[in-house]
Design a protein around this nucleic acid. Structure first.
Lengths: 168, 168
DNA sequence: GAGAGATATCTCGATGTCAAGACAGTACAC
DNA sequence: GTGTACTGTCTTGACATCGAGATATCTCTC
């Protein structure tokens, strides 16, 4: 391979090697790329959702409900675990989604502390359209890698992610 | 390998397959993992920097200056390109870093619109200590992968990142 | 069945970010 | 040289997030 496709992180690593030759900066090759890629993905997602009048945070909540299957209903607690945000943030998100008419809140009949949040018709339609669109764009972003490479990449990332998702 | 190490994304993909069997959700195997991993990394970094009394955003700016080499000086414009934030954010960051005594601002003698930002002694010491610490922790995060896997992962990520870093 | 601790949700204040625009200075063509 | 477009930095207002704490309810032990 004539992999001369240097990216921003290659330049960053080279700079560190000059400035701090005493340190092993190899971890940056992986982890800086993960962070930078995530930042670019956020921007791409924002652009994709704009066509459906959705913010990324709205999409995150709506897809969690959509994935739950009928009746598309989850507790705020389940939602915050799915989206990695704090409880205060989730309360705020649900408030605004309810105001926009995308979700509906009702008291949990089984637990009087609890609440259940469910998709409305318009919320369901909106998230389905946005999700199809997102997948189309993500497919394009990955077009630089063949199916084998994609699977290899997914497997490597899974290894890194596992300790976070299932704490020891 | 008994690769049964299902993570949160495997569950997410399985749920989508059930709910939207009409869609090809393979891209999520890669891109959802990138986003989720980045979120976990942010938290880990925040914890690491807390010991050095630095916020992640402070670290980002200080390392950009550190990497520049002596005299550790860059313009705000160069800094915002290095950190992927907007100009308003960078002005705010420099203000607070200057107030904290980590950087210093001076007018650019070559361009009267411009400003140059440089590390102070304490800024330099702080960033060097925090960076060593960060690398130690990142090294541990990657301990689940051998050197070959790490290189493979880095190469695959580079391919995805290249189109963003060097727009065609 | 009473009490202690855990759990679920919400409230509130502080903060970092962005987007849009203001302003000063520079560069280049004519 | 003058005018126009561009560049670099800063200002402002809106907003989403977090963290800590408040409140209500549940659960488990004795």
């Amino acid at each position: 391979m004539t992999e001369d496709a240097r990216d921003e992180v290659d330049r960053l690593v080279a700079a560190w090697r000059t400035e701090r030759p005493d340190l092993d900066v190899e971890p940056l090759q992986v982890l800086s790329r993960v962070s930078r890629l995530a930042k670019h993905l956020d921007r791409a997602r924002r652009a994709a959702f704009a066509e459906h009048d959705l913010e990324p945070w709205e999409f995150d909540v709506l897809t969690a409900l959509r994935r739950a299957g009928k009746p598309y209903e989850l507790s705020p607690g389940a939602l915050l675990r799915a989206t990695l945000v704090t409880s205060g943030t989730m309360t705020n998100r649900i408030d605004r989604l309810a105001q926009a008419g995308h979700v509906r809140r009702r008291p949990d009949p089984e637990d009087r502390r609890g609440v259940l949040v469910s998709l409305t018709e318009t919320g369901l339609a909106r998230v389905d359209a946005a999700f199809s669109d997102l997948l189309r764009r993500e497919h394009d972003l990955l077009s630089g890698l063949g199916p084998t490479d994609q699977r290899a990449l997914a497997a490597l990332l899974r290894t890194l992610l596992a300790p976070f998702d299932s704490p020891p």
